[in-house]
Simulated scan of single mutants.
Amino acid sequence: MKTKIKQWTMLTIILMGFTVLGYNGYSQENQSDIKITKISELQNYTDSYIKGEVIKILDEDEFRLEDSSGNIKVYTGWKNTNVVKKGDKITVRGKVDPGIVKEFYATEIIKEDGEIIKLKSDE
């Protein structure tokens, strides 16, 4: 009887582990549910997703992203260097800071293969 209880306990633990792993993978934001904002329609300080192609690497933590409506400088933060390369097609979450140079401060990058990169804050 004890052997059966141990087997059921072990099976339950294993199934719970797979359930947690499956849930974490599934809970990632589904790209088809994301509302994409055109670069030309971005509003200052509003959390938005933009999608396009990396057309130029400006620095190890900055690049220029282009969509059909225009392009914008994207800042990933000094703790997040070299996360994309020229030619990458990506979706970026962040906010526009309209300072002297209009810049999109990224908080998350979703690569074409679905990989999600949560960017570390500069703070």
Score class of each variant (00 low, 15 high):
residue 38 K to T: 10
residue 118 K to L: 14
residue 23 Y to L: 13
residue 52 G to D: 09
residue 41 E to Y: 08
residue 61 D to E: 13
residue 105 Y to A: 14
residue 16 M to I: 10
residue 81 T to A: 00
residue 59 D to G: 10
residue 65 L to Q: 04
residue 11 L to Q: 08
residue 102 K to I: 04
residue 86 K to G: 00
residue 32 S to C: 00
residue 118 K to N: 12
residue 27 S to T: 03
residue 16 M to Y: 06
residue 53 E to W: 00
residue 100 I to P: 15
residue 95 K to R: 15
residue 74 V to W: 06
residue 96 V to A: 08
residue 64 R to H: 09
residue 94 G to I: 13
residue 72 I to M: 14
residue 22 G to Y: 01
residue 32 S to L: 01
residue 29 E to D: 02
residue 105 Y to C: 09
residue 119 L to G: 08
residue 18 F to R: 04
residue 94 G to T: 02
residue 62 E to R: 12
residue 72 I to N: 03
residue 122 D to R: 07
residue 122 D to W: 07
residue 100 I to N: 15
residue 11 L to G: 07
residue 1 M to H: 15
residue 93 R to C: 00
residue 114 G to Q: 05
residue 95 K to S: 11
residue 30 N to M: 11
residue 7 Q to K: 15
residue 74 V to H: 06
residue 123 E to F: 14
residue 70 G to F: 14
residue 83 V to A: 11
residue 10 M to N: 10
residue 79 K to Q: 13
residue 80 N to R: 01
residue 104 F to I: 05
residue 107 T to H: 01
residue 40 S to E: 09
residue 27 S to L: 08
residue 38 K to M: 05
residue 67 D to N: 00
residue 7 Q to A: 10
residue 77 G to S: 09
residue 87 G to L: 11
residue 50 I to A: 13
residue 2 K to P: 03
residue 99 G to V: 04
residue 79 K to Y: 09
residue 2 K to L: 04
residue 3 T to M: 11
residue 26 Y to T: 07
residue 116 I to E: 05
residue 81 T to P: 01
residue 42 L to E: 04
residue 123 E to T: 01
residue 87 G to D: 13
residue 104 F to W: 14
residue 107 T to A: 10
residue 18 F to M: 07
residue 113 D to A: 08
residue 52 G to C: 02
residue 80 N to C: 05
residue 45 Y to L: 14
residue 23 Y to V: 09
residue 22 G to E: 09
residue 112 E to T: 07
residue 11 L to D: 01
residue 11 L to T: 05
residue 93 R to E: 06
residue 11 L to A: 10
residue 28 Q to T: 00
residue 56 K to R: 15
residue 85 K to D: 10
residue 34 I to E: 03
residue 118 K to W: 09
residue 32 S to Q: 03
residue 84 V to Q: 03
residue 73 K to M: 06
residue 58 L to R: 06
residue 23 Y to P: 00
residue 94 G to C: 07
residue 75 Y to R: 09
residue 2 K to I: 08
residue 120 K to I: 06
residue 122 D to I: 01
residue 77 G to N: 03
residue 50 I to W: 03
residue 15 L to K: 03
